[in-house]
Design a protein around this nucleic acid. Structure first.
Lengths: 269, 269
DNA sequence: GAAGTCCATTCGACGATGTCGAATGTTGAT
DNA sequence: ATCAACATTCGACATCGTCGAATGGACTTC
């Protein structure tokens, strides 16, 4: 691990948390000399990863991070495959459809199909939700050992609302249920008034690469079985397109993720 | 400029251009030993700025860049101020509305209000367009010396279509015109069949912080004067909300941007 | 089958390079 | 007028990143 690069990325993370900071504040949060931070920030500045407000001297994230994010979405096969089915699913259910991938112990929304009712909705692509408070996160963790470990093994479960599951044992049980039904749920655990159901998405290696889910208001809850079935079949279809041979993925226990069973270049045998 | 950080950002840039690369390919493009690149990539990997495909070993951008991009948008005052007026402008004109900021010699779209006709449209936030082939870029460069220098001073103007202005003299004239009218135009210079008009957005220091523009098809061109007036007044309104005292900004020549006239913390005098 | 190639990855020694504290010159606050 | 906080510059030190060589897979070719 390269020290200076690690520090640079830490600086970006700090700036991600608190949007406007002086050089000294950044240095303080990382417990580093201001002069050290200055050198790194100057480099980030040159690449427009950060910008400096010209009147106050405060630092903020820069436009270059946005273009990186956009390219990331373009490169995501998961996203292109999900686009068409998410639209179909939204039409069938009348609900918003979210697709997400894991980021350590959070999920990141990579696709958002708005409710078809035409209501104005915030763009949700790129938002981050603690995995343990999200149906999407639970759906993934049910089938991915690393994800489950990241959530359960990394300190206490933080409460977002009064409904958030903060007990590791309870969460573990929910993951077992999700594995039994192929569906994970969440009721007002991240945002009051909002509930979700989600199903895991897998690829050719059987790895949990993401999840797709429906978002409903509490008064629409519980959802009709037909909606859940529509979700299940959408997840199966997308997974098939990603090369999965069976869905839901087999296994009583979550699968260890990829690496190790590593193979280069899949070619016709 | 910290060498290793600079290299890390270069790696991200390379990955932004070519989406899937092996370690060796990255090393080759940067003319560095594979082993050196490996150390940096491992650090990027730990922060999920890049991910490694588990079957091929190829590297791609990771989900962390997406969340950074999302936060950048949230922090952008320009964006929140433009949102309401862009919607109004789209309704009045029936056209899509784009808002962008400069990124060296490109513009980055930070807000996109779709045409109100309900047609399916790709999400355009985050896309990058060469500034010299974009009405948005011209609108900014007309009032920002640094931007103009970045475009005109940095090598030849690359052609996107047959209509792209590649002659520095012609472009300079267009910038003069834009400064005279407050409006910059572009006719099939970036994408065939697509035209644009744009107006600069300024802040309290009179700096060109971005531009707002209309996107039309070639057969809708030229636009009715009423539409251009609507654009002009939207740009004025947004600029006022950003603290601009006059719009369009004065000055026969583009203003030198900020720094130097630096002042910390604007407080009541 | 076996040799050959391309790949990511590990290791250790060298010295270039990042790091740090002190010093500078701002600006706004007292 | 004094003070405090700030970004920034500088130079010396030693740490830390860099590099070439070596390893061990996996696929391809003979």
């Amino acid at each position: 691990m390269i020290q200076s690069v690690d520090r640079a990325l830490r600086i970006l993370a700090v700036l991600q948390g608190d949007h406007r900071l002086t050089l000294g504040e950044i240095a303080q949060r990382l417990d580093l000399p201001a002069s050290t931070v200055h050198g790194i920030v100057r480099t980030l500045l040159a690449h427009r990863m950060v910008v400096q407000e010209h009147d106050s001297g405060h630092y903020r994230l820069g436009p270059a991070v946005l273009t990186l994010g956009n390219v990331y979405l373009d490169t995501l096969e998961l996203r292109s495959r999900v686009t068409v089915w998410a639209e179909d699913l939204a039409r069938r259910t009348g609900l918003a459809v979210r697709t997400a991938v894991m980021l350590v112990d959070d999920v990141v929304v990579v696709h958002h199909e708005p409710r078809p009712d035409g209501s104005r909705q915030m763009p949700e692509v790129g938002i981050v939700i603690p995995a343990h408070a999200s149906s999407l996160g639970k759906a993934i963790a049910a089938y991915d050992e690393d994800a489950a470990e990241a959530i359960l093994g990394g300190g206490p479960l933080e409460a977002m609302t009064g409904e958030t599951v903060t007990d590791a044992g309870v969460l573990r049980t929910q993951l077992d249920e999700a594995r039994a039904t192929g569906i994970a749920t969440e009721v007002e655990e991240a945002v009051l008034g909002e509930c979700g159901v989600a199903a895991v998405l897998t690829d050719r290696l059987g790895g949990a690469v993401g999840a797709i889910g429906l978002v409903a208001t509490t008064d629409e809850w519980p959802l009709a079985p037909a909606m859940v079935n529509a979700l299940r079949s959408a997840a199966r279809r997308v997974s098939r397109e990603l090369g999965a041979t069976s869905w839901p993925p087999k296994g009583d226990a979550p699968r260890a993720s990829a690496m190790g069973t590593r193979r280069r270049r899949l070619r016709p045998a």
